[in-house]
Design a protein around this nucleic acid. Structure first.
Lengths: 231, 231
DNA sequence: CCAAAAGTGTTAACTCTACACCCATGT
DNA sequence: ACATGGGTGTAGAGTTAACACTTTTGG
């Protein structure tokens, strides 16, 4: 560290992650209660400073794993924006790289980071809570991002367990888009797209009724034609 | 500035901008020749450090204006990613926030920054040049971003002058997507979308043939249905 | 047997593509 | 008059939405 490093413009860089999942039929987000100032005691998104030897993606993946136990590979973790208002942190200049993580329901918020202070909350309720920093803006953007991702990519599968049925996938779309989709048409549409869904050969009756075929996520990332949320 | 500020993890943060326009029928990018190490003498994207009192968007807008004279309001300037490999700058840790700017052809690269060392280059040629840092990756992402933006948003108008014809707009799509589009079908499609194009009432014959109606960009940002580059 | 959910068939409405054709100007 | 590009009409192909219907299980 030289003097010029200190006098030249520099900043703290943090990665903040809106970890989204579907719980009890609602799009939900993981919030922590801050143990330290600033905003001590307030709800916030998980986040932390980027270490000198890691990328911001790695810092975000680390936060994700610490708070949920979900490895990066089981999620879709994407950068959704940079928050750099000089006043956003009252103590010092911190530039935040915001991420959205779409993860399968990991059950109760776990021990990793600081279990006692983490909680899942339905996204619509979280948007009405006072959140630390500009985390409300990050959360808004993360939710908009998720809705858009479902239109153009196969990211909906990130909300599902490893093996899932077409109806379970449909419910993801219905919950995130807040619409009803025709089960028959939806089934035809998604099963016709090459490499979207990989049949396992197994079936399940866990949702009742006639047994449903089980699938895993295929290799396709971007949908050839967007799935529209329109009625 | 306290001691803890220095010993805690921190970084230099830069904004690098891929300024894209359409010149001589080709998608082109503004490159500078670096006057200083590292990578002295090499081609690079314009960029600079984020000052302590400005946002990264503002730093990017400043670069854009310095190099082209184009104000932020006449462009679409969007963050397209964060480049934070600890080794990306050989001298010290620098995290780069990458932007893509879509601008109308501003004529010759101008005096602002350092006219002698800036040049427009067709994007496909620039992709084959050795560029400083990881700027090739940023440029690739900026081009992919532009192609996608044209599908889902009204950003194509950012490449056009203030007033433009439907055919001029069509040429933007044809050049960026590297396709031919049916003039009649394209005309019908875009003029039918509410708030995409605002008729001025004037016409022009600057492209020859029958006079074409002039339009300005409307208020719509996101297309209700994507325009596909499909055949 | 009945309820429930999976998955398929069918059809009318809609949209898109290709291309023919007419229009309004400069030369 | 004619070349040039602007813009409209139209028919056939393709796609979609709505919903009836069959399938396969659990109770």
């Amino acid at each position: 560290m030289t003097l010029s490093d200190i006098t030249n413009p520099h900043s703290f860089v943090a990665a903040d992650v809106a970890i989204l999942t579907i719980r009890d039929g609602a799009l939900s987000v993981l919030l922590i209660r801050r143990a330290n100032p600033p905003f001590k005691g307030m709800l916030a998104l998980p986040g932390g400073f980027v270490e000198p030897d890691e990328t911001v993606e790695r810092a975000a993946a680390r936060e994700l794993f610490e708070e949920t136990g979900v490895p990066k590979s089981a999620s879709r973790l994407e950068s959704i924006g940079v928050y750099s208002d000089p006043e956003r942190d009252p103590r010092r200049r911190v530039i935040s790289i915001a991420f959205a993580a779409l993860v399968p329901n990991p059950g109760e918020s776990r021990a990793g980071g600081d279990a006692a202070s983490t909680q899942w909350m339905p996204a619509d309720r979280a948007l009405k809570e006072p959140l630390a920093f500009d985390h409300i803006k990050i959360l808004e953007r993360a939710i908009a991002h998720a809705k858009r991702q479902l239109e153009y990519t196969t990211d909906a599968t990130a909300f599902c367990p490893d093996e899932f049925t077409v109806a379970e996938l449909r419910r993801v779309y219905e919950i995130v888009w807040e619409t009803k989709l025709d089960p028959g048409n939806f089934h035809r549409k998604v099963t016709r797209i090459d490499d979207f869904l990989q049949p396992t050969g197994d079936t399940t009756t866990r949702d009742g009724g006639r047994p449903a075929a089980l699938y895993t996520a295929g290799t396709l990332k971007r949908l050839p034609l967007p799935l529209s949320p329109g009625k």
